[in-house]
Amino acid sequence: MPISRIAIGSPAEASQPDALKAALAEFISMLIFVFAGEGSGMAFSKLTNNASNTPAGLIAAAIAHAFALFVAVSVGANISGGHVNPAVTFGAFIGGHISLLRSILYWIAQLLGAVVACLLLKFSTGGLETAAFSLSSGVSVWNALVFEIVMTFGLVYTVYATAVDPKKGEIGIIAPIAIGFIVGANILAGGAFDGASMNPAVSFGPAVVSWTWTGHWVYWLGPFIGAAIAAIVYEVVFINQSHEQLPTTEY
């Protein structure tokens, strides 16, 4: 069971140069991702006189997030593993691929990256608000919770299949593409209902800058549950436990 391999880590780990470099890489990757993804929505809204909640706006958001995540994962892959998502980090922790203390370091960097990206967007657009994630009319928090669980399950399952699995072989080189594609596809599926976050940091940044917290817990609980389920399923069913544990920087 992956739960038996969960590691807390040592306090000294947080001050190790490689851990600090990895955290910085996560900060930069998250800043790139949120700035491009959130910024594309703000740009589309400006160009269409605040008509971003349209089919064209949804498609634009899906494409922008898919491309931005592809780049963000690629540039961080060789340093931090290119998690770019607290839920992905949590899934890696559940599978025993990263310690708790290193995970916390990643989470702090990811949240700061998202907040800084939204602050930069607000400043560079002359004070336009970064829209916080919210539920559409007729969608309850429980509907949204299920959406977030299922979509994040698909995302983290893809991460495990293309980047974490020690048997992946050459397929690992397409991991950033596959991860970007599944996020773009999930936005097309769930964007009209709850915004399709799948990423607590992506929800946290706009919420802090706009100070809007309605239903915000959904965008934490759903992704973490989905990530945990994906990690446990893939570890138990598909990863041969006799394989040597992967170093953090290899996924």
Rank of each mutant, 00 (worst) to 15 (best):
S203R: 01
K167M: 13
I149G: 10
E148G: 01
L112I: 11
V159I: 15
P166D: 05
V164M: 12
T125Y: 05
F193A: 13
G215Q: 07
G169P: 01
A132I: 08
A161K: 13
F123P: 00
L155D: 08
T212Y: 11
K167A: 15
V150N: 04
F204W: 11
L119V: 14
D194H: 01
L119Q: 13
Y106P: 07
V202S: 09
F193M: 12
M151Y: 07
Y160A: 09
A92W: 05
L188F: 09
S137Y: 12
F193C: 07
L119D: 05
N199C: 10
G172R: 08
V141K: 05
G172V: 00
L100C: 11
A161E: 13
Y106E: 01
G172E: 04
G215P: 12
T214D: 14
T152Q: 06
A109D: 02
G172A: 08
I173R: 12
A109I: 07
T130C: 13
L128R: 12
F147A: 00
T130S: 13
A131H: 10
G180L: 09
A201G: 13
V115K: 04
V150K: 02
K167H: 12
A201P: 10
A175S: 13
A132H: 03
A114C: 14
W142R: 00
G195W: 01
S197D: 08
I174M: 15
P206A: 04
T214H: 08
W211P: 03
V164N: 07
G126T: 09
A189H: 04
I108F: 14
T152P: 10
T162D: 01
K167I: 05
